Simulated assay, not measured.
Amino acid sequence: MTTRTYAALLRGINVGGHKKVPMAELREVLAGLGHTGVRTYLQSGNAVFTTARADAGLEELARELEAAIEGHFGFRVPCLVVDGAHLRAVAAACPFPAATLEGKQLHVTFLSEQPGEERFAALDEDVYLPEEFRLGDRVIYLYAPEGLGRSKLAEALARPAVVKGLDVTTRNWNTVAKLVELTAEPA
């Protein structure tokens, strides 16, 4: 039986006391969906799991998890599911010198689908320097030297003109690197 390893990225949980999702309960919810090897990372909604459901697509896995979370906790949480291969490709394609930056300076916004370049046409990138962004494969790489909390470019990239109709969630580089490690398939 062939299994695949995925990362579930939950958006907007455990922030300021809202949408509390204890990681132990999240692991139970994932196991209840038939997934195995369930692990979580940090309290911000990062879960890794394995499934033998070779026929399940990423979107299907995400919607099932959203429904299960809503059924268990009583509120909706947007979820993105990515496989380990995509995470490794995202890390390998990073256009910024990740090894020389602090994790808080480099972020990846994961997107449910690839946006067209026209979504970014109104952004005058020079206004935000030294902050920069680059579009990747269903991701936006963001270099924010002062961190995400102070980033004006992050605010601009979160505007409806850019993300309307997309499920999005952002992780710092340290988290991306850890998820790459956690989703590595055994040799």
Rank of each mutant, 00 (worst) to 15 (best):
F75E: 03
E66I: 09
L42N: 11
L26C: 03
A68E: 08
T51Y: 07
E60W: 08
R53L: 14
R39A: 15
T40E: 03
D55K: 08
N46I: 12
E60C: 06
G74L: 13
R27P: 00
E64D: 14
A67Q: 15
A62E: 03
A68V: 08
P22S: 02
E60N: 03
L58Q: 04
R53V: 07
L26W: 11
R27S: 11
E64A: 14
G32N: 01
L26H: 09
V38Y: 05
G57K: 00
V48M: 12
A24I: 07
H35I: 05
G74T: 07
L65W: 06
G17R: 06
I69N: 07
A47G: 11
G34A: 07
L30Q: 04
H18V: 01
A54L: 15
E59D: 13
V48W: 13
I69W: 05
F49Q: 08
L58A: 13
P22M: 01
H35Y: 14
E60R: 07
G71Q: 09
L33I: 01
G37H: 15
F73Y: 12
G74K: 04
G57Y: 00
G32M: 05
G34V: 05
T51A: 11
T36V: 15
F73H: 07
D55L: 05
A62H: 02
E25C: 03
D55F: 09
N46C: 10
A52W: 15
P22C: 00
R76I: 02
E66Q: 13
E28V: 01
L61V: 00
